[in-house]
Design a protein around this nucleic acid. Structure first.
Length: 816
RNA sequence: GCGGAUGUGGUGAAAUUGGUAUACACGCCAGACUUAGGAUCUGGUGCCGCAAGGCGUGGAGGUUCAAGUCCUCUCAUCCGCACCA
C-alpha cells in the first residue's frame, strides 16, 4: 500500500478522539508526569514556532505514556489581550467573537498535527469561569496587602492607550507596538512583587539543575539586587535658607562606601522632589528653569547620549569631614532607582569622572592600586588601598566597606541598605478585553473590594470599540453599581488586568479535573499530585516576563495557603526560534511558512519529524524546503519497508548466535537506537540524534533480509518513533503488532556482545591504520598485532611507550 | 560597559565527556532503471596532491602518549541588560 499521509492521519486523529486517548487518570497513586507547553495567544493561525513548541512537548508526553506514566499534557488559550481589541477597531469585529473564532480554528490545527492534548481540560483565560476564580485570588491578595492602588509615574503607550509594566518596555518602547513610551502620572494597581524580590533571587538556586543558565541570569539581573550604604546629606545654613527651610537633607545610596572620603559633589535626578520644589516656587533663574524643563522632557534614550548637568547653587556638608559639597542636577541620575540622588566620586567612578571633567569639578582620589600609581586621565574603579581616608588609611578598599558602613551605623548617620532594580508590578490596563479588576469606588467607603459571591464581574458584551478611551468607562450602565459595603450608589473599577495575570496561574488551573472545573479553581489534592510541572517548554522571550510573574504567583499562593511548594516549573526547556533565510519568520518580513500548507502537502508527521530532526530543540532552526522533502522521504521509506515485517503479537525471539554478520549488525543498530532514544527522551532532549540513530538502524535493516530481524526492528523502531511521527507509527503498529509495541521496550544486552573488535592504531597520536582482534585478546597480543600492522611507520624508530585504550585504540609512542 | 551563549565540510548538524573528527540528513557528482524525471535504487563526496603523503574543529600558545573536548590569551557572531550609583 502506498503511503497516504492524509488517510492515515485522519484515521488516527479520529481514533484518538473517539477513545479519549489522552485523558489523564484520576488515580493519584500512579507515577505522574506533567508536560506543559506555554499556551498560545489565539492570534488566528498557528505558526511554525507553535508547531515546534508542541512537537517537543508532545514527543515527551507520548514517550512517558508509553513508559506507563500518568501524563497530563493540557492546552489552553491566553485569550485576553490587545490584539483582539485592535482587530475590533480595524474590522469592526467583536473581541469576543474574534477570539473564540480563532480558538476554534487553532484547535483544529492542533488536532490536525496529532498533538496529544487532554481535550477535557481545554480552556481559555477569557472564559467567565476563569475570570471568576482569578478575581477571587485578586481579592485574597488585596486582603493580604499584596495588591495596592497608588498614584505614580507610569509607562504609558500612546498608541495602545494603556499603561505598561516595566518589563513590557523594551528599549524605551512598547513591547507590542514599538511606540516610544512616555511617563504619565495616574492611579494604578500594583502587585507587591518587590516583597518577594529576595526570595525570587534566592530560589533561583533551586532551579539550577532544571533551568537554562541564561534564564536564571536574566532573572537575577532583572531583579538587580545590590547592597550598600544609605545616608543623609544635610544642607548648610545658606542652602536651607534658599529652600525656605523646607528641606534639611536628602537621602543617597551607594554601593561604594569605601570611596566616601572622595565625594566631591552630589547629584539629583531632574525629577527629584527638591528640584520640583525649586521649580514650583521659582527659586531659580529663568534660564536655569528652562534648562531643567528641557532635561525633564528628554527621553531616557536621549539622556544616554551625553552627560549634562546644572548647578543648583546649593551645598551640603560631608558627613565625615564636614567639607562643603556642591549640589547638581545630572541627567544620568535615575529618579526610579534608590532615592533619585547620588554622591559623586569622580576619582573612582567612570560616570562621575566624565561629569566632573565636563564641569571642572574637584577629583579627590582616596584609593590607590596596591602596586603603585593609578593611571592618569581616568577613574580608578578597582580594589586598592585607601588613603586620605582618616582612620581607614592603608585598608583594602573592598574590606573597608564593612567597617565604614559599621561606623555610619554606630554614629547613627546611615545604614546598610539593599536596593533592587525590580519595581512593583503595575497590573491595571485601560482596555476592554481583559479581566475586570473586582473593585468598586464608593464616595463613602472609598476603595471597596467586591463580595466573592458576586463574582465573576464579567465584561459587558454590548460595547463600542473605537480605539479612543476605555470602552468600559464609556459604557452607559456597566460601571454603575451598589457599594458592596454600604449599598449606596457606587462606581465599578473600569480598569482591567494585565494579561500576564492570567498566565501566572493557568498551569495550576490545568490540574483541575473535569469534575472540579466548575466548582473550584483547583483542589489541593490535585495540585499536590500534579505540580510541579515536570517539563515546561516555551520561548526564551518569556525569560523575565511570564516566568518571573508565574514564580511570584506561586509564592503568593503558597503564602495564601493554596499550595505547599516554592517553585512551579521543575525543568524548563527554552526552544530556539524558527528562522527562514537567516531571520525570524514574521509576517512583516514575508518569510513565513504556513503549517497548514505543509500538512496539506506532506502531512503532520513530516512537519513534526523535520522540526525535531533539523536541529536540537534549544537551538535556532533554519527552515529548509529540501530538508522537509528529506523527512517526507524517510517516512515514506519507513512506511514502505514495513512490508518486510511479519505480523506478530509479541516481539520475535531470535537466537543471536545463528545470525549473519549483517543481521547481527542490524540488531545492534536497532538496540543502539533504543538505548539512545531512552536517553534522549529522559534527559538530553536532542531528538535530532535519536532520529539519526533510527535512520542508521533502518539503513542496517535494509542491508539484510531476515524477516524476524525486520519484525523485531520495526517492533522497536515504531515504538520509539511514535512520539515523533505518531500517525504512521500507530498505523504500522496496528497493522503488524496490534498496537502492543507502543510501550516500554526492553534492551537486550546480548546484541552488543561482539566476537571481534576494531581498534584504531596511532603512532604518536596520529591515526595510521586499524586492526581487528578477538574481544578477549590480551593486551600483549593487541600490542604485537598493532605493531605488525603499523610496521611501516615503526621502521628504524625507537618505541618509547605503548598505550592500549580498551575497545578504542592503540597508541604507540616513538622517537627518531 | 556588564552578563549569557556560540564558532566543526558546500548546508543543517554528530562526536557515550580527554581516546579512530565530520555519524545522520540536505546538496552535489557518477551509474542503474526509465519515453521522460524535480520519481526510485546503487555508489562516491573534508581540503591539497597523480600518488606516497600532508593539512584540517575561528586564531595563537600550553598541558597530555592522545585535545573539537582541559588551561591561558585573542578574534568574530548572536542574545539579554544597560548611566542601576
Amino acid at each position: 500500500m502506498e503511503y497516504s499521509a492524509k488517510t492515515i492521519e485522519k484515521k488516527w486523529q479520529n481514533y484518538w478522539k473517539e477513545n479519549d486517548s489522552f485523558e489523564p487518570s484520576e488515580d493519584f497513586t500512579k507515577d505522574k508526569k506533567y508536560i506543559l507547553s506555554m499556551f498560545p495567544f489565539p492570534s488566528g493561525r498557528l505558526h511554525m514556532g507553535h508547531v515546534r513548541n508542541y512537537s517537543i512537548s508532545d514527543a515527551l508526553a507520548r514517550y512517558y505514556r508509553q513508559q506507563g506514566k500518568n501524563v497530563l499534557h493540557p492546552i489552553g488559550f491566553d485569550s485576553f489581550g490587545m490584539p483582539a481589541e485592535n482587530a475590533a477597531i480595524k474590522n469592526g469585529s467583536h473581541p469576543k467573537g474574534w477570539t473564540y473564532d480563532n480558538i476554534d480554528y487553532m484547535k483544529n490545527e492542533f488536532y490536525s498535527l496529532g498533538f496529544s492534548f487532554s481535550r477535557k481540560r481545554e480552556m481559555a483565560t477569557s472564559d467567565e469561569l476563569y475570570t471568576k476564580f482569578e478575581q477571587s485570588f485578586i481579592i485574597d491578595m488585596y486582603e493580604k496587602g499584596l495588591l495596592y492602588r497608588e498614584k505614580g509615574l507610569l509607562n504609558w503607550c500612546p498608541n495602545d492607550q494603556t499603561v505598561l509594566a516595566n518589563e513590557q518596555v523594551i528599549d524605551g518602547c512598547c513591547w507590542r507596538c514599538d511606540t516610544p513610551v512616555v511617563k504619565k502620572d495616574m492611579n494604578q494597581y500594583y502587585f507587591k512583587i518587590t516583597k518577594y524580590a529576595d526570595e525570587l533571587i534566592a530560589d533561583l538556586k533551586k532551579l539550577e539543575d532544571g533551568w537554562p543558565k541564561q534564564v536564571l541570569t536574566m532573572q537575577d539581573n532583572w531583579i538587580g539586587k545590590s547592597n550598600g550604604l544609605a545616608f543623609d546629606l544635610f544642607f548648610d545654613e545658606d542652602s536651607k535658607a534658599k529652600l525656605d527651610t523646607k528641606f534639611e537633607s536628602f537621602d543617597v545610596f551607594t554601593t561604594r562606601p569605601d570611596t566616601i572620603y572622595g565625594v566631591s559633589y552630589t547629584a539629583l535626578a531632574p525629577e527629584h522632589a527638591i528640584v520640583s520644589y525649586m521649580l514650583d516656587n521659582k527659586l531659580l533663574s529663568k534660564d536655569i528653569i528652562t534648562q531643567i524643563n528641557t532635561m525633564k522632557a528628554t527621553s531616557s534614550i536621549d539622556r544616554q547620549k551625553e552627560k549634562s548637568g546644572i548647578s543648583l547653587g546649593l551645598n551640603v556638608v560631608h558627613p565625615l569631614t564636614g567639607r562643603s559639597i556642591p549640589v547638581w542636577i545630572a541627567n544620568f541620575v535615575l529618579m526610579d532607582y534608590g532615592s533619585g540622588a547620588v554622591m559623586a566620586v569622580p576619582a573612582h567612578d567612570d560616570r562621575d569622572y566624565d561629569f566632573a571633567k565636563k564641569y571642572d569639578l574637584e577629583i579627590n582620589a582616596v584609593i590607590k592600586p596596591f602596586d603603585g600609581k593609578a593611571e592618569e586621565g581616568k577613574a580608578f574603579t578597582e580594589v586598592g588601598e585607601l588613603f586620605n581616608s582618616q582612620e581607614f588609611d592603608g585598608m583594602n578598599s573592598k574590606k573597608s566597606q564593612y567597617n565604614i558602613i559599621k561606623m555610619f551605623e554606630e554614629k547613627a548617620i546611615g545604614k546598610k541598605t539593599t536596593n533592587y532594580k525590580l519595581k512593583d508590578w503595575g497590573v491595571s490596563r485601560q482596555r476592554y478585553w481583559g479581566a475586570p479588576i473586582p473593585f468598586v469606588h464608593c464616595d463613602t467607603c472609598g476603595l471597596v473590594m467586591e463580595q466573592k459571591e458576586n463574582l465573576p464581574i464579567a465584561l459587558p458584551d454590548d460595547v463600542e470599540i473605537t480605539g479612543e478611551g476605555n470602552p468600559l468607562e464609556n459604557h452607559p450602565t456597566w460601571k454603575h453599581c451598589a457599594c458592596p459595603a454600604c449599598g449606596k450608589d457606587a462606581i465599578r473599577e473600569t480598569d482591567t488586568m494585565d494579561t500576564f495575570v492570567e498566565s501566572s496561574w493557568y498551569f495550576l488551573r490545568f490540574c483541575a479535573s473535569p469534575e472540579t472545573l466548575q466548582k473550584a479553581a483547583f483542589t489541593q489534592d490535585e495540585i499536590k499530585y500534579w505540580m510541579g510541572v515536570d517539563h515546561y517548554i516555551g520561548g526564551i522571550e518569556h525569560a523575565v516576563l511570564h516566568l518571573l510573574y508565574a514564580r511570584f504567583f506561586t509564592k503568593v499562593f503558597r503564602d495564601l495557603g493554596y499550595l505547599e511548594f516554592d517553585e512551579p516549573f521543575d525543568n524548563l526547556l527554552t526552544q530556539g526560534m524558527v528562522l527562514k533565510d537567516g531571520s525570524k519568520m514574521s509576517k512583516s518580513k514575508g518569510n513565513t511558512v504556513d503549517p497548514d500548507a505543509i500538512i496539506e502537502k506532506y502531512g503532520a508527521d513530516t512537519a513534526r519529524l523535520f522540526i525535531l530532526f533539523a536541529a536540537p530543540p534549544t537551538q535556532e532552526l533554519e527552515w529548509n524546503d529540501s530538508g522537509v522533502e528529506g523527512s517526507f522521504k524517510f517516512i515514506k521509506r519507513f512506511h514502505d519497508r514495513s512490508s518486510h515485517v511479519v505480523a506478530c503479537g509479541s516481539i520475535p525471539s531470535i537466537t543471536h548466535a545463528t545470525l549473519s554478520k549483517e543481521e547481527k549488525f542490524a540488531r545492534k543498530k536497532v538496540y543502539e537506537a533504543l538505548v539512545r532514544a531512552n536517553e534522549v527522551y529522559e534527559q538530553k532532549h536532542t531528538f535530532n540524534t535519536m532520529i539519526a540513530g533510527v535512520m542508521e538502524a533502518m539503513n542496517a535493516l535494509n542491508a539484510q533480509t531476515n524477516s524476524d530481524v525486520w519484525s523485531e526492528g520495526y517492533w522497536i523502531l515504531s515504538s520509539i518513533m511514535e512520539p515523533v511521527i505518531p500517525h504512521v507509527a500507530s498505523e504500522i503498529s496496528e497493522k503488524y503488532f496490534g498496537l502492543k509495541n507502543l510501550s516500554k521496550q526492553v534492551v537486550l544486552e546480548e546484541v552488543f556482545v561482539e566476537d571481534t573488535l576494531t581498534l584504531g592504531v596511532s603512532i604518536n597520536g596520529k591515526r595510521r591504520t586499524e586492526i581487528e582482534i578477538p574481544t578477549d585478546e590480551s593486551k600483549e597480543n593487541i600490542i604485537t598485532i598493532a605493531k605488525e600492522a603499523a610496521s611501516k611507520w615503526l621502521e628504524g624508530k625507537e618505541i618509547i611507550k605503548e598505550i592500549v585504550v580498551p575497545k578504542k585504540l592503540v597508541n604507540i609512542v616513538v622517537k627518531g
